[in-house]
Design a protein around this nucleic acid. Structure first.
Lengths: 200, 200
DNA sequence: CCTTTTTTGTGACCATCGGAACAAAAAGGG
DNA sequence: CCCTTTTTGTTCCGATGGTCACAAAAAAGG
């Protein structure tokens, strides 16, 4: 059944299903086929798909078109959320170029930086002074912090004053925010540390 | 007690504890104080610390110096693991500049790219043809894939031929590898999608 | 010495996630 | 019409992670 909240792990796989199903041209597709193609478990695929649609036919599989529609609905492809990046250093520009956010219905409207040289050199980078105006005009809901640890809290407060509802923080520090604002703390080093533990 | 394997969630917090404890100058520190300072739960702090040391004194707290030593041991600060980045686009260079890997005892020895302009313009970027030699000389154990989806598998195979033991893959695709090789799949868009679900 | 108080350490519970096993449904063949 | 086969959908189990509650230990004060 289509639940209101889809688990994070499932959500992460939905774009892969969507892409795969769009490329196919079968009328019906089985979970086993999808699983094999994407190197996933069969049960996992069925659970994921049942979370967004639950309309498979035994002995036949899933109707591809129905499934594509259901996936697009779940991913909110129709209802795009706008986001901004603050800090247009290497990380900020990497995120600006990262193609993959659209898969989840998130559009990066631009990056903002205080350094005028960076602003001049990049089409989608704007001066920080325009942050408030653009957030207002584009109804931006998500702010991505890609500045250093020292200015992260300051930028966070600035974003909050722009009526941002969610923060994605790449700076390696804890931010203080009022309740009602969502935050996701990214820690790039963490995955690497885990890998180090495994390779000994 | 000091277990052989520390959970990933715990591991991610250890550098914060270490940094905080190094900055302090108390002889004894309580879990409540650490928790409050780092915005964590008290029990979480105690469980984390007991995973690396387990030497707290009731009514007194943890001996700061002992704890710092235990944390450094757990993070393998003494035993650094070398890593290379393949692909020196914006993401690769952002990772090259990211300070925070050292906290976990991982040293990025350099990035590699096939584009000679990028190689010439960056001191720590080398031509891909030197990958094998440098991996051999520096005993590199971890390879970070920061190239596009199309060449990811090819680069993965190349890294394997350089005796890499672990892969950190930023390309949004599944890689096929032999058993015995560890892989961590990074999905930057996933966190953002989760945030979108919360603010939507 | 004994009680109180503070702090550590751990056991119990809940949520998420993934995999295995199994029940249910639908097509197809005799 | 019934039996087999394929595929879905669900239920159960184990592992991880986080929080609450409580037991255990050690200092402090009478």
């Amino acid at each position: 059944m289509s639940k209101l909240s889809i688990g994070m792990a499932t959500l992460g796989r939905l774009p892969k299903y969507l892409e795969f199903l769009k490329e196919s041209s079968e009328e019906y597709i089985s979970s086993a086929y999808v699983a094999k193609s994407l190197y996933l478990g069969e049960v996992q695929v069925r659970k994921d798909l049942s979370a967004v649609s639950g309309k498979g036919k035994p002995r036949v599989g899933y109707n591809r078109e129905e499934l594509v529609e259901a996936l697009e609905r779940a991913l909110g492809s129709g209802k795009t959320t706008n986001a901004v990046i603050v800090g247009a250093g290497k990380l900020g520009r990497a995120l600006l170029d990262y193609s993959g956010f659209e898969d989840f219905g998130v559009k990066i409207v631009g990056a903002f930086d205080i350094n005028e040289d960076i602003v001049r050199g990049n089409e989608r980078v704007f001066p920080l002074s325009e942050l408030e105006r653009i957030c207002r005009e584009k109804k931006v809901k998500i702010g991505i912090i890609a500045v250093g640890e020292k200015s992260a809290q300051e930028i966070c407060d600035l974003l909050l004053s722009c009526k941002i509802k969610g923060i994605w923080n790449f700076a390696p520090c804890k931010l203080t925010l009022p309740s009602g604002i969502s935050i996701v703390q990214e820690n790039l080093a963490l995955s690497l540390a885990h890998l180090k533990g495994q390779v000994g």
